[in-house]
């Protein structure tokens, strides 16, 4: 994984609560055996109508959404299935940060393992972001600081280990493999 230190972008807003992984990437696109290419189907059923035409109302289809890497979503984003295809689809599309008051557990951890930054904020900050799409946002992974144009910076939390891995581009499997001896010893005790 490439190191992820700082992301600077304008924000796009999807204000709905409880956006589940079936909306992020519907199950019918899970037949893939690779990680790439899922961005094409990100939010497929909201982005396109039944005939495959773009739904002009949907936020990703508006001209101002082009190139935005920060998605502000309603509460409990990413609930539902454990499919890692959800962060893969977001990243493949170009979203690098998801901001909400609450982000579902499995999605949160899957995101960090792929370099998608899940940022939990309080309701006040959330409300400001929801009400003002298109703000300049900086997510500083080193300082764990969220800086939003026109507002005081706020801190957010990410597990220290996950942050270390993000900043240094560290593969967690490598870390686990370093503990091979401890795992051997554990198994020896079992048998």
């Amino acid at each position: 994984m490439e190191p992820v230190t700082k992301i600077v972008s304008k924000s796009i807003v999807l204000p709905l609560d409880d956006i589940d992984t079936d909306q992020i990437i519907p199950a019918r696109f899970l037949t893939t055996t690779v990680r790439e290419g899922l961005g094409e189907h990100l939010f497929e059923d909201w982005r396109y109508d039944a005939d495959g035409n773009e739904n002009a109302e949907f936020v990703l289809n508006r001209p101002e959404a082009g190139g935005c890497a920060v998605l502000v979503a309603g509460r409990n984003f990413g609930c539902g299935s454990s499919r890692e295809h959800a962060p893969w689809a977001l990243l493949d599309y170009g979203i690098q940060v998801v901001i909400s008051t609450e982000i579902a557990d499995i999605f949160f951890h899957n995101s960090l393992k792929n370099g998608l930054i899940p940022v939990r904020v309080d309701e006040q900050v959330h409300a400001r972001l929801l009400q003002n799409p298109g703000l300049d946002v900086t997510v500083d992974v080193d300082a764990l600081e969220l800086r939003v144009q026109g507002f005081d910076p706020v801190l957010f939390e990410i597990d220290r280990f996950a942050r270390y891995c993000l900043l240094n581009g560290i593969d967690q499997l490598g870390y686990l493999m370093q503990h091979g001896e401890a795992i051997d010893a554990y198994e020896a005790r079992l048998r």
């Binding site: 299935s81 454990s82 499919r83 890692e84 499995i106 951890h109 899957n110 393992k113 792929n114 280990f161 967690q172 499997l173 870390y175 686990l176 493999m177 503990h179 091979g180 795992i183 198994e187």
Partner: peptide
Amino acid sequence: GIGTTEVGHVLATQCML
């Protein structure tokens, strides 16, 4: 439930973080 990256971790090490 775990994600696919973790499936890889468990396949390779029988452990997870």
